[in-house]
Amino acid sequence: MSGLAETFAAAAQEQRGVLIGYLPAGYPTHETCVSALTAMVRSGVDVVEVGLPYSDPLMDGPTIQRAVDASLAGGTRIADVLRTVESVAATGAATLVMSYWNPIEQYGARRFAADLAAAGGVGVITPDLTPEEGGEWLAATAEHGLDPVFLVAPSSTDARIAQIAGIGRGFIYAASTMGVTGTRDRVSGSAPQLVARVRTVTKTPVAVGLGVGSAAQAAEVAGYADGVIVGSAFVRRLLDSAGAEPETGVRAVAELAAELAGGVRQRRPRPV
């Protein structure tokens, strides 16, 4: 099993971007989700982000909302998310959880950190936890050797970027655009500048998310960032295969992973 630092360092050696893939736990079922995530890893995803399904995902667009609603309706619990992490971490890929704050708070921050570390997880992305409210969480993650990943946005001030870079571990999640998750035709033009601003204050790797869905976009983002985060595009493949055999969705996810893995190895210059 490798941590985030090792994964980013190895990719840097190979002069390529790290590919980070997301799916919400329990969608479409626990088993198919685990199959899809492990297939992702086999097809070139370096870091897996297991989403903890939440009833009020206010940073997510319609694609992820639909999958998360279905997962919750299917009865997915926090224990199932941890089981998913355990299965995926067993592949050797660095495995994170992406969770809104309230489920972690209700589970107990220390208990969640302990159980996640025991399951083999290496970190947690918390999209609605600000540094001001993160004191207890920072202590809990430090105690259990987990990387707390925080977001920066194009609207973040320099002072705030410095503050977030000062507490974030593993990588800094740069939200490419002002908005919610979901693929877009073009990755926002504000992303390269945001990544550059983060780089002036930290040596921690920077990964870009929101709106990336194709190999070409992955190549473009890998041209200026250390990592490329893809979520909705993977979820879309599963949604589109709803009703078909589970293998169909898993295969579609693996195909996209392979395309994107090719992309992060190309590092295309950005179109002007």
């Binding site: 206010l58 977001l151 946005a153 609207s155 973040s156 705030r160 002002m178």
Partner: peptide, 20 residues
């Protein structure tokens, strides 16, 4: 000053909204 009423209140939002 940080928007708390005792332990309640505060800000739990995506970073993109903090500037606003």
């Amino acid at each position: 000053p940080s928007g708390h009423f005792g332990r309640y209140g505060g800000r739990f939002v995506p970073e993109a909204l903090i500037a606003a």
